[in-house]
Design a protein around this nucleic acid. Sequence first.
DNA 1: AAATAAGCGAGACGGTACGTCCTGTCTTATA
DNA 2: TATAAGACAGGACGTACCGTCTCGCTTATTT
Lengths: 209, 209, 209, 209
Amino acid sequence: MAESTPLEESRSPRRAPDPRRRSERARRAILDAASELLGEVGYSKVTIEAIAARAGVGKQTIYRWWPSKASVVFDVFTALTGGTAGEPLPDTGDLADDLRTVLRATVDELNDPEMDRTTRAFTTELQNDTAFAEAVTERLVRPNMEAIKERLRAGRDAGQLAPGADLDIVAELLTGPLHHRWMLRTGPLTHAYADELVDTVLTGLAPRG
Amino acid sequence: MAESTPLEESRSPRRAPDPRRRSERARRAILDAASELLGEVGYSKVTIEAIAARAGVGKQTIYRWWPSKASVVFDVFTALTGGTAGEPLPDTGDLADDLRTVLRATVDELNDPEMDRTTRAFTTELQNDTAFAEAVTERLVRPNMEAIKERLRAGRDAGQLAPGADLDIVAELLTGPLHHRWMLRTGPLTHAYADELVDTVLTGLAPRG
Amino acid sequence: MAESTPLEESRSPRRAPDPRRRSERARRAILDAASELLGEVGYSKVTIEAIAARAGVGKQTIYRWWPSKASVVFDVFTALTGGTAGEPLPDTGDLADDLRTVLRATVDELNDPEMDRTTRAFTTELQNDTAFAEAVTERLVRPNMEAIKERLRAGRDAGQLAPGADLDIVAELLTGPLHHRWMLRTGPLTHAYADELVDTVLTGLAPRG
Amino acid sequence: MAESTPLEESRSPRRAPDPRRRSERARRAILDAASELLGEVGYSKVTIEAIAARAGVGKQTIYRWWPSKASVVFDVFTALTGGTAGEPLPDTGDLADDLRTVLRATVDELNDPEMDRTTRAFTTELQNDTAFAEAVTERLVRPNMEAIKERLRAGRDAGQLAPGADLDIVAELLTGPLHHRWMLRTGPLTHAYADELVDTVLTGLAPRG
DNA sequence: AAATAAGCGAGACGGTACGTCCTGTCTTATA
DNA sequence: TATAAGACAGGACGTACCGTCTCGCTTATTT
């Protein structure tokens, strides 16, 4: 994913700055400072002023290139994930195995304090800023869901999934519970949990005749 | 649930005010004002000052009885739901039917703009305030999950669920996807969706032999 | 003169604050800080922020009671002069003597660094803010001119001034040159200068027959 | 007076630009823009950025040739007056007449809105920038005072002034009151006023024996 | 005529201050 | 003694300019 494309680019009536003249030094300093501060004080206590001060940068330089704190954090996030959104899932031929791999990786990510922090920052902002929410959904969430559905489709074609399975539902059955548990902290996020989730979803819960 | 018990009551060193002298008029005015403002400007733009002004109340009266904006909103929320958290699910004998009923009700709630707004406000605050998160989880989330599990247990005993089913997982399989779709707005929340979710979870996805 | 009546009181649409609740401590701290800073860095480099910081006061407390930096300085000034504007001049019976006394006092005032600084600050602001200019003229300049004219009138009645003398002109002949020399720094401001000015004005410059 | 010689030329350590390569187009555009803006928003609200934008010029082009806003305005001023500073006064043989002519011209100048504005801009800056003040005094004020004194000297030699008259004082008696009335707006500036001023100064105010 | 330098328009940059808004505490006056 | 009102110290907001700096481009002198 193209990391530095600013979110919500056409929101304000301000004349657009010339990206060719943009200072790479300042850009990096700002993202680094934001990342550090996120870890130190938490998203809601991060201020644009503190980012600017820590980065050794004028506030205007932030406001020139980002419309909001949220969108700075968005870039921090995409810098972290390295733009893996929407990459195809592994396909070893064994659907259950591959899903376990992916969900274990997700668990690991959410257990990483920096990722956890940044992702929560996101989640916060998603609730309050619809435009931001749409941008994030479009660029991160949807591509990831599509990648999962792609792998599921292959599995279904290979006879590892019921032929009539609604892939949207299945994808949500895999990611929803994980997300729910992480967000509400209702239980531990472990590899075992990831495995059990996959198994339960694939096997189903009705008693077998 | 006792609606007006403040969250996180022992946070500050201040001497507790005498609840017998509390003005019910002021309490109602504050909750009403907060609810209105939530709808008009969204959680993050609601300020204590605005609530006080709209309620015709001194700021101190708010600070005296609630520790934070989040906890005012918490009381707005519990006033809305009428304290149904943890109530047992209906039990008609048909597990699938009962789950559909419950999930449809949840869908309806989340589609109500006022509930939607208030719940998002929550979700925001949960990410940033751990103490608040714990209180909410303990008082709202866990009781609801337990109620679901109770109904699932009855269904399992009645042979409508695989004997070895992990009820925690099943409960999450029902609520997680719903929550995920609502939060990230990745699809429409309809009764049909609720129904399909229940069916898929109960039937499973593996091809039947 | 009532020192603390704010200048330009009805300029903004903001609801007026309640003067009974005003903190005297804050008021004094602000005027003191402003006075110190005027001396240290000069009017144009004094900032509201610096005054607030030095006074240990929130910026809002300044903006609540004064509409501008200029009007803070106005109060510093009137605190300095002790509200002597418009006081009657001495009357010993000898007009020339009395005028010399007054002009010498003016010279002394303008030679005092603090007064010099504050008065220059004024003069600056008078040029750029018409409303401020009118207020100052009405409250300080005009009363002083009137006081001078009153003494001149008495002198004229006593036969110490030509019967047809235009008192406005005479008053300006006494204050104008002093002010001019001070403002443009075209010459030293001394008692001797004050004396010579009085003598020249009274005696006239035409050769005597 | 050489209009475009910048004030305070040796202030900065920067290498001097080559005046031969200076763009006359830019210079005119800057002075015009500055003059317009002075009229529209007043000196204190004129910014270098606005001048540059209005003139269609880079900011650096202004900073290259002028050290400050004040010195741009200085050049606007000298462009207006056409460099008449220090020119000898008319000498018709009648001192009173000639002084009336000169003071009437001064009155007319100060009544011209553009001159008024520019001159007030000056007066502002003179108070706050000592170096600027000295330059202006040296180049404008002193030459004008000297020219007046020269005419007075001739008048004194011709027996139209008391032989012992201190010419510095007399010059100030003529310009000071005018300046004072203009600056503090304490009265109308008219030809009649100019005439009366000259008469009063020359005739004196003591009653004639 | 080509090479080389400088001024030029443009505008990003690190900063400072602006005037506003809100926080959570404290004070005043009323009931 | 709880309340409505609101002043207070503090701090972040987003904007406007400051004066410096770097870009390409154009325009004058050198060679």
